[in-house]
Design a protein around this nucleic acid. Sequence first.
DNA 1: CTTGACCCTGTAGCGACCACAGGGTCCATA
DNA 2: TATGGACCCTGTGGTCGCTACAGGGTCAAG
Lengths: 137, 137
Amino acid sequence: METETTFNIGILAKATGTKVETIRWYERVGLLSAPDRTSGNYRAYGAAHLGRLSFIRRARDLGFSLDQIRTLLDVAGQQDLPCEAVDAIAREHLEEVDRKIADLQALRRELDSLIGQCRHGRVAECRIIEALAPSKT
Amino acid sequence: METETTFNIGILAKATGTKVETIRWYERVGLLSAPDRTSGNYRAYGAAHLGRLSFIRRARDLGFSLDQIRTLLDVAGQQDLPCEAVDAIAREHLEEVDRKIADLQALRRELDSLIGQCRHGRVAECRIIEALAPSKT
DNA sequence: CTTGACCCTGTAGCGACCACAGGGTCCATA
DNA sequence: TATGGACCCTGTGGTCGCTACAGGGTCAAG
């Protein structure tokens, strides 16, 4: 049996565009399994870790939460299950994203009309402040 | 001189749709001034507090950060300054919102195409998992 | 043998709260 | 007057996903 080539955390970090601290944190919260250690107590990663971390990072880029990623990784390991669970997580996330977009667009409209009312005078007659402030008594 | 009518934190909370703990937290971080206390050490709020908290809540609803709100409140108190500072904060925030919307829309497109590829088979040949996983060796 | 780049653990901080625990206060009702 | 329950107090710890130290150890090059 041949020995797998291993590398330090810094290499893994660079290869995946992740900060070293973030990798250690993924290990702490159980997303990344604890790797073997060298004689000097350094973490020694292999190709499997690289693959798993790349997966995590891509999913993060797509906005999945760590909990969702945990589930995705779990399911990805159960190769002969139907992939409906995967689909469900992705769809749920899509809906969340849609909701966020709608919220932000509503907010944008409000902000925009607020700004449109600014007459560039004194604070005393500022429409933006007025709009935020409660009705004066 | 007449004594101002005052009310407890719970009343203020209900009136503004804020949790009691949140009000106390605004006080801790200096957004809301510490009110007088009753003989029983209860916070006694008045109309000014109600106004200020309403302002904060509306600004929060529009997505301003507490730091931005702090500045807005500062400026709102300087009635004869030009209101450009207010305008600038609002515009900056609008740009931020626009950026977030664009990011989310890009993400949405990616997610959507990912989901569109699901053939509802086994995890082993799931396109979603494949798309996330690194190229197999 | 020293320098400097890397690595280790552990802890604290971010923003904007929320949720207790373990007490004190107040008021209406019995 | 006693009691029960709704309210209030402070202080601490948790959330999410990291980031940033502090105070050390390891390793390879010169």
